[in-house]
């Protein structure tokens, strides 16, 4: 069964329709790269998956559970939307770290707040917090920042900040982790370290969607590639299919332009 299924997703802002019926499916453990020119709706798609925007139309299913269905729009309480969000994680282009907290706290804060809702929280508080702390440290180690545990975001380079943001998203163990151009706010010499971390996260039980302009990365890491144009999936296939043998004229034109620049 597909871990994620998106069907006919539509979204307009005022008069402009940004998503015009996007659909795709993913298997568990897959890495999907979404490429496409500026304004084609990639960010909007990720924001819809993370419930930062409400689609006008469409269905989103995770593991067989329908999270969103425009035909069956029961009024969603804030609490319900929060629960649905936790299926997804999102790493922003601009990091959005919390400036007043250390690296460790940035990573552990949301997990701690969530743990308060556990029924055994009061009884086992200190043990739960200890567990959260050690798993946060472990995750920070995995993105290579053990030395920076107590640093504040302003003391880190852009690449390091983005790695903290990735650790922060990982800490909640989302089923599907989304990245919105994770390296495009970085100096070229810093993109490598972030891409390396993302590549290292690839595993059989972690599903990832990466919106990116790094074609080399998409080609090497993604199991599947989607080329979006004008609010629609213009082309879809394995990395090899899309990069080596694109069928659509628009995809070809996009690659030609990309090589030129």
């Amino acid at each position: 069964m597909a871990i994620l299924e998106v069907r006919d997703l539509k979204k307009s802002f005022g008069d402009t329709q940004v998503l015009k019926g996007v659909g795709f499916a993913m298997e568990k453990g897959e890495v999907l790269a979404i490429i496409g020119s500026s304004g084609s709706g990639k960010t909007t798609l990720l924001r819809c998956l993370n419930f930062l925007e409400t689609p006008d139309c469409g269905i989103i299913t995770v593991n067989g559970e329908t999270l969103f269905d425009s035909d069956n729009r029961s009024p969603h309480s804030e609490g319900e939307i929060r629960k649905k969000r936790l299926h997804f994680g999102l790493v922003f282009q601009s990091f959005n770290l919390f400036p007043q907290y250390t690296v460790l706290k940035n990573v552990s804060l949301a997990v701690e707040l969530l743990a308060r809702e556990r029924s055994d929280y009061k009884q086992n508080k200190s043990e739960i917090l200890r567990e959260i702390d050690s798993s946060a440290r472990e995750i920070i180690g995995r993105v290579g920042l053990s030395e920076k545990m107590d640093a504040y975001p302003f003391q880190l380079s852009g690449g390091q900040q983005q790695r903290v943001a990735i650790a922060r998203a990982l800490a909640l163990k989302p089923e599907i982790l989304c990245f919105d151009e994770p390296t495009s706010a970085l100096d070229p010499e810093l993109t490598g370290e972030v891409l390396k971390v993302i590549r290292s996260l690839k595993s059989s039980d972690r599903t990832m969607i990466v919106v990116t302009h790094e074609m080399e990365f998409a080609r090497n890491v993604a199991d599947k590639v989607i080329f979006m144009a004008d609010g629609q999936v213009e082309e879809e296939g394995t990395a090899e299919e899309v990069f080596e043998r694109p069928r659509s004229q628009r995809t070809k034109a996009f690659f030609t332009n990309y090589k030129k620049s």
């Binding site: 959005n96 969530l114 998203a169």
Partner: peptide, 22 residues
């Protein structure tokens, strides 16, 4: 910045938690 609220939201925080903690 709006990104601070959104970061809190995608991390599953409630509105109150976002206001008081972030």
């Amino acid at each position: 910045p709006k990104g601070q609220y959104e970061a809190g939201q995608v991390l599953g925080m409630t509105k109150g938690q976002i206001f008081f903690k972030v």
